[in-house]
């Protein structure tokens, strides 16, 4: 027997659980669409430092989730975009800490059943995982690839990578302050464009 049920008003809870956290934040007036565009680009940037099975959308939505559920609170005086960018960064670091912890536990388990021999220093080695280092190397190549025809941009990127100040960068690469600033702006725009590319 066919029955027809008309739902003229979705229960609030069903609406809530099927709406992305960023959408809920937008609807609540906590962020603007311009903020969300900026955060999308930042999320796509930060996600470059994560394994490929973790999407930038996961990172972004998790940051909004933690803000909405109250586990991360916006400090006074910190703008929402800067706050959420910080949350995304800390989520990323948390992921790698748990990844390393898991890797060490697996090593210990293998050692306990005699498959491998483990030295004590292997468990306390502060070096990052090979996967994280490999991701960094690959992503650096991809970012540099965005500026194949732009040597000053690649120089500034190398300087940022090495932690040089703007003054040190200008001195190292015989660059004027004006050229340095305009190069940073070009890099920023290219990253924004890269962050807006459609991804299904």
């Amino acid at each position: 027997m066919k029955t027809s049920i008309k739902l003229t008003k979705l229960p609030v809870d069903i609406e809530r659980i099927s709406t992305l956290p960023a959408r809920r934040a937008l609807d609540a007036g906590l962020v603007t669409e311009a903020d969300l565009l900026r955060l999308k680009v930042i999320a796509r940037l930060y996600a470059r430092g994560l394994p490929s099975h973790i999407s930038w959308s996961d990172l972004l939505q998790e940051a909004f989730t933690r803000m909405l559920e109250g586990s991360r609170k916006q400090p006074a005086g910190v703008p929402m975009v800067a706050f959420l960018a910080g949350v995304m960064r800390s989520i990323k670091e948390q992921y790698w800490r748990q990844y390393r912890k898991g890797a060490r536990q697996r090593l210990k388990s293998l050692a306990n059943i005699g498959i491998i021999e483990l030295q004590d220093e292997e468990l306390t080695d502060p070096a990052p995982s090979p996967e994280r280092q490999l991701i960094a190397i690959e992503q650096m190549a991809m970012i540099n690839g965005l500026f194949e025809e732009d040597l000053p941009a690649r120089q500034v990127i190398a300087a940022l990578y090495d932690g040089l100040t703007p003054e040190e960068t200008c001195s190292t690469y015989a660059m004027s302050t004006t050229d340095y600033d305009s190069t940073r702006k070009r890099i920023r725009r290219a990253i924004i464009r890269a962050g807006m590319r459609f991804e299904p």
Binding site: A34, L37, R38, V41, I42, L45, Y46, R48, G49, P79, V81, A82, A85, R89, P128, R132, Q133, I135, A136, I137, Q139, M140, I143, I157, L160, Y161, D162, G163, R184, I187, R188, R189, I191, I192, R193
Partner: peptide
């Protein structure tokens, strides 16, 4: 520079630039 440290420094610098960029620049781009 250790690859992951350098890369994170780069990401942080670019992210800060994105945070500081004007809304007009973001929307124009």
């Amino acid at each position: 520079t250790r690859s992951d440290l350098g890369f994170e420094r780069l990401l942080s610098a670019i992210a800060q630039d994105l945070i500081d960029a004007s809304e007009e620049e973001i929307l124009t781009t």
